[in-house]
């Protein structure tokens, strides 16, 4: 198991898409920071910037694309045939992917954040490092939601044996296109139970990323449960799928 983890990390740092994704993140971070500089206050909060890095849909889309390419590459190139027979149970192949995901969702927002700071400094802004326990808590919950999001991307790659579905779904989630579905669910619920105040949107990963970014205490607890539920379900489905399916 430890060897497979080492192998996946070796592969991640050797993969061109890893470095390209970071360069794209740097470019977007610097560009948006430069544009924001034209409209915002000369004093910029570092806490605000790091929370922005975690809740930005650009970062989510980059994460979606890299994780999809990375996870799917193993079966697309057939390299999995070299190792899958020797790893028992085969579900052990999931853990290294989750560790890659964790590493990536630390590195990517951090790079985005650092280059944001750098851009603001370069254009003459004053950065206020206003971190507090609450900010770290918010970052931790955002991280959990990010992990759940990435777990869904991994799950889609594994069950569909393709990167197309995971990229499409990931981008649609990031672009909040699924809000139409939530509205439809709410409409059906209100028809069944006219007095209901149920809002399905509150239980989606992306909406919780936004709620948590606004640092609302009520939403934080709910976001933790939503994050854990989505991550647990996605990992369970991935494990069952890789265990049951034959390697093609």
């Amino acid at each position: 198991m430890f060897n497979i983890i080492k192998m996946d990390f070796y592969r991640m740092f050797k993969t061109v898409s890893f470095w390209v994704s970071l360069i794209v993140a740097v470019g977007i971070s610097m560009f948006t920071s430069f544009i924001a500089n034209l409209f915002e206050m000369p004093d910029m909060s570092a806490a605000y910037l790091i929370i922005q890095a975690f809740s930005s849909s650009d970062v989510l889309i980059i994460c979606t694309i890299f994780i999809s390419i990375f996870v799917h590459a193993e079966s697309k190139n057939g390299f999995i045939k070299n190792i899958a027979g020797q790893v028992k149970p085969r579900s052990k192949l999931i853990l290294p992917k989750l560790l890659i995901l964790i590493s990536y969702i630390i590195i990517l927002p951090l790079v985005y954040f650092l280059f944001s700071i750098l851009t603001f400094i370069l254009v003459g802004n004053n950065i206020i490092f206003d971190f507090s326990i609450d900010i770290f808590m918010t970052i931790a919950v955002e991280f959990l939601l990010y992990f759940a999001f990435g777990s869904i991307i991994i799950m889609l790659c594994i069950i569909s044996n393709s990167s197309a579905l995971s990229i499409a779904v990931g981008i649609m989630m990031s672009a909040r296109i699924f809000s139409i579905i939530y509205a439809a669910i709410d409409f059906v619920v209100s028809k069944i139970n006219p007095g209901s105040t149920f809002t399905s949107f509150k239980y989606s990963l992306i909406s919780n990323m936004q709620y948590v970014a606004n640092m609302n205490d009520d939403s934080t607890v709910r976001a933790i449960f939503v994050g854990i539920a989505f991550a647990a379900a996605a990992i369970a489905i991935s494990v069952l799928s890789i265990q049951k399916k034959d390697i093609k």
């Binding site: 080492k6 192998m7 070796y10 592969r11 050797k14 061109v16 190139n77 070299n82 190792i83």
Partner: peptide, 18 residues
Amino acid sequence: GVYQNFSAKENIKLKCIA
């Protein structure tokens, strides 16, 4: 089953690590 963008040595090294 080989990574097309990796060299032969890198592919073998991956399997050796595994």
